[in-house]
Amino acid sequence: MSILIDILLAILGVYLAMQSLLASRLSQSVFLFFAFGLALALAWVRLGAVDVAITEAAIAAGFLGVLFLDALRDFSPRDTEEQQNLTTVQNSLSRKESKSLLLPRLALVLGLGLFLLIALEAVWKIPEGGGLTAAAETLLPESGVEHPVTAVLLNFRAYDTWLEIGVILLGLLAVFAVGGIQIYRKPIAAADDPLMRQVILFFTPVLFLFGAFLLYIGKSGPGGAFQAGVLWGAIGILLHFGGIPVYSWVPRWLGHLLLTLGLVFFLLLGFLFMAAGDNLFEYPPAYAGLLILIVETLAAISIAAALTAIFANLNQMKKEQPNDTAQK
């Protein structure tokens, strides 16, 4: 019985993925993608990866979904592929082009098919590896936390996690970079809607507390910096929607401080213990639990700030007149 659920979930995931790419309307695509993310989150739960499920739901489906939806307003509402088909019928030239594309597409599908067969064989024949469960289990008591995933993330492989916090900051810098030469501009607030503002203001403390809970629970169960960070980031995004652009209220230096706090504190802590003769990110076992909680909290703040800023920057892209086009 349970295996049937898994098979159905797998088929659903594949179907949603296919449909989100094949859908003729862009908005359909995005909604199907959103659904795909949720199906994937279900799959994580089925596989016992609750941390991943929360992350997937919060960041990959939630945050990214919001970004895509926001982007939809930007792109032409007309149906892209459909319209192209329409013009194909009308325009003999582009029909010719689509005919000339038929053969390459066939070749592509053939290649994909063969690739898929080999990939399936590779995955099917995979030898037993054993994994690192046993190793993690033995070392877990020394890590300072009880939840193995948190132990791996913030202690065993803290270096990866640190770099990853860096990647989020980088994502923000990259979004800045896209804005061309006008960076650090103040975002423009969304339209004022009193009702929405009230609703959002109501949800803010709830989300905050939920985030704090996730953060704290990360020590012993599913949850942690990323999940909390995303939830807190969601607050910022919601407030932005509600016409309260937190991002532009915060003074520049404070904004940067919030953004870099997690990354820098993480690193400086590492350097501190390195100066004492240890390796980078090596915590004394006695204080490990406390230090990890502090690092997680700061990281969550930074992630929240970065996500809010990314959203705010993307969101106001539409509104801003591309006046620097003239400078080209």
Binding site: A135, N155, F156, R157, F281
Partner: peptide
């Protein structure tokens, strides 16, 4: 890094 040797670290 972190004082954890491979394969875990």
């Amino acid at each position: 890094l972190g004082g954890w040797e491979p394969p875990l670290g």
